[in-house]
């Protein structure tokens, strides 16, 4: 049987931890509500943008914009890939950060393997949002751009736009052939899954995947059979479409990832609080038992002592 003092000490520390996790749970619950609202507001913007891209591509399949064309590579050449990975600034969010880091590593390895089989070389650069993921990826020996640092908390459209500018500039300059965005998508309130989306060149299939199923038919401005005109000219319209599309993609992903992080943290902290509650119950019971057995021992000693003196 443990000593009652030890049990009391443990009980105290478990109680303190419980208070901590409970407080964190409440904080992330508040943050989650805020980011959920932001997420719901960006929803229509994000999906309309993606939808317009699809529509334009469907109506004008012969677009000659660099953002729509996948570059061709011959044997011995190098694919340059840019990854934009969205992780959290803090830990204590269950498997949230680990999941993102894991699929990033898997994707890089499978890409390299794929290209080796085709006789191509691969160069990649990771741009990581959030400290936790960045440190982990650096520790594991992946190439991470050390100068790229953007806060993931409370994302703004302005930040998304500066990142989109980086992507556009590097893509046009030939520093990237492919750009992937890796973030966590919220499928329902309880289910979150990390996912990889190719941002440029525009990937119609992936776009269809990230759109909610009911959006496909909603709000399509072009009736069947009609041709689509561009004003003032297709190129100007495309550069704007691409701008808006990149901004929307990034902003949407940032907001979604942030909302996911808060939800993950809330769930993790909720579990921790529940566990602490269980532990407190168990320890209290143990403590009571220890106290009782201590009293019993003392009583026996007293009675024995009394008997001894009576015999004398």
């Amino acid at each position: 049987m443990d000593r009652i003092e030890d049990i009391k000490k443990r009980l105290r520390s478990v109680n303190e931890i419980r208070q901590l996790t409970r407080a964190m749970e409440l904080v992330s619950a508040a943050k989650m509500r805020k980011s959920k609202i932001q997420h719901d507001l960006v929803g229509p913007y994000f999906s309309l943008c993606a939808e317009s891209m699809l529509e334009v591509q469907r109506h004008s399949p012969d677009i000659n914009d660099p953002f729509f064309r996948l570059r061709k590579k011959d044997k011995g050449e190098t694919w340059k890939i840019g990854y934009f990975v969205l992780t959290g600034d803090q830990g204590l969010a269950g498997a949230y950060n680990n999941n993102v880091v894991r699929i990033t590593q898997e994707h890089i390895q499978s890409k390299i393997l794929d290209n080796v089989e085709k006789g191509l070389r691969t160069e990649y650069m990771l741009y990581v949002f959030g400290n936790v993921g960045r440190e982990k990826l650096i520790r594991d020996g992946y190439t991470v751009d050390p100068e790229f640092s953007f806060p993931i908390t409370n994302p703004t459209y302005y930040e998304a736009r500066s990142v989109a500018n980086i992507i556009r500039r590097k893509y046009l300059a030939g520093e990237f052939d492919l750009v992937y965005l890796i973030y966590t998508k919220m499928e329902s309130a309880a289910k979150m899954s990390p996912m990889i989306v190719r941002v440029v060149p525009v990937n119609t299939k992936a776009l269809t995947d990230i759109l909610p199923a009911d959006v496909n038919d909603a709000g399509i401005a072009v009736e069947n059979g009609a041709t689509l005109d561009y004003h003032p000219n297709p190129n100007a319209v495309f550069s704007f479409l691409i701008d808006t599309y990149l901004n929307a993609m990034l902003y949407g992903a940032l907001v979604e990832a942030y909302a996911c992080e808060q939800t993950a943290r809330m769930t993790a902290m909720n579990n921790a609080t529940d566990n602490a509650d269980d532990m407190i119950k168990e320890l209290t019971q143990k403590g009571n038992r220890a106290r009782q057995s201590k009293i019993t021992t003392e009583l026996i000693e007293i009675i024995n002592g009394a008997e001894q003196t009576a015999k004398k």
Binding site: L228, Y230, F240, L241
Partner: peptide
């Protein structure tokens, strides 16, 4: 109006 995409 005829279908049109316009840059703003």
């Amino acid at each position: 109006h005829a279908p049109l995409v316009v840059a703003l």
